[in-house]
């Protein structure tokens, strides 16, 4: 598969900080993949996200998006329209007082023709299931709805990659579900590359690949089943494991022979059901 984002030996230093937030990180994101980046606060995961669309330029090393070096001024707009970014607080990403005007913001900036903007806005709003709300005022919508508007606002640029920086951190459980299923549908329909930055373990279960960031370094990288099986290591890093893994892990400690990589609730239920039928025999 083609690499769409390539991060090569990147270090980043905030101007007023004592040490590097990211230390010599290398990472390649293949096209069409769904990668989850995990880490607790201050691990450098948000910095990693902002490096992907030239909001931050690496202090050392190189980031390329579709082969374009993010540190070059001329690549700024092409990079940003390729990598769409959604942030934590939906209120602080919405620019206009009417939903459809907000979604139109990015294509307007790109100088797209009026009729084409209209088409893209309607399409983006339908994709996130907010078309009926196009004439509403954003501040009257729920957190999950606002975040879907923010996603639509990014989709209207027609990006190849979607980077979500803790998109559910400020939402209630219902809003979280809404946003995650929207992302899931988008992936299924468009095959878009998704980079999800989060500290909720449960949100990583559906990913192809989970990367754990700690203290500016990538400490784990693998399929979700693989990463979450390393329960002790994750705990040492101050991270939790999904409830499913937690259950299986505790049962294993109690002496039962169970696999740790049954991550989804259904898979976990099957394992537990198997346990009961075995003991019944």
């Amino acid at each position: 598969m083609d690499t769409v984002i390539s991060i090569e030996n990147v270090s980043y230093h905030y101007p007023d900080a004592a040490e590097n937030v990211l230390k010599n990180v290398s990472l390649a994101i293949p096209a069409g993949s769904f990668t989850a980046i995990l880490g607790h606060n201050g691990s450098g995961k948000s910095t990693l996200a902002k490096l992907c669309n030239a909001i931050l330029i690496p202090t050392e090393g190189r980031v390329t998006v579709n082969g374009l070096d993010t540190s070059l001024e001329d690549n700024l707009i092409p990079v940003r329209r390729t990598v769409g970014m959604v942030f934590q607080n939906p209120d602080n990403q919405i620019v206009a007082s009417v939903v459809e005007d907000d979604v139109a913001f990015a294509p307007e900036n790109l100088g797209v023709e009026s009729a084409e903007i209209r088409r893209r806005v309607d399409d983006a709003l339908r994709r996130v299931g907010m078309y009926e709300f196009r004439l509403h005022a954003p501040h009257l919508l729920s957190g999950g709805q606002k975040q879907r508007i923010a996603i639509a606002g990014v989709l209207a640029m027609q990006p190849k990659i979607l980077v979500l920086d803790e998109p559910t951190a400020m939402l209630d459980p219902l809003g979280r579900k809404e946003v995650l299923s929207t992302v899931e549908e988008l992936r299924a329909e468009t095959g878009m590359t998704v980079l999800l930055i989060t500290h909720h373990m449960d949100e990583c279960i559906g990913a192809d690949r989970v990367i754990v960031v700690s203290d500016g370094q990538l400490v784990m990288d693998g399929a979700p089943g693989e990463v979450f099986s390393r329960v002790e290591e994750l705990r040492a890093l101050g991270l939790d494991v999904p409830d499913t893994t937690e259950t299986l892990y505790e049962l294993r400690k109690a002496g039962l022979d169970l696999p740790l990589d049954a991550l989804t609730i259904d898979a976990c239920a099957d394992v537990l059901a198997g346990l009961f039928t075995k003991s019944a025999e």
Binding site: K50, N53, I55, I77, R80, R81, G84, M85, F87, N89, N92, Q93, V95, E100, D101, A104, F105, A106, P107, E108, N109, L110, G111, V112, E113, S114, I117, R118, V121, A150, G153, V154, M157
Partner: peptide, 22 residues
């Protein structure tokens, strides 16, 4: 935060900007 979000959506001033509703 809004400034960063606007930059992410390719805002670069009024030059070359079009409008959906003219």
């Amino acid at each position: 935060e809004l400034a960063t979000a606007m930059e992410c959506r390719c805002y670069h001033g009024g030059e070359g900007r079009t409008r959906m509703k003219t």
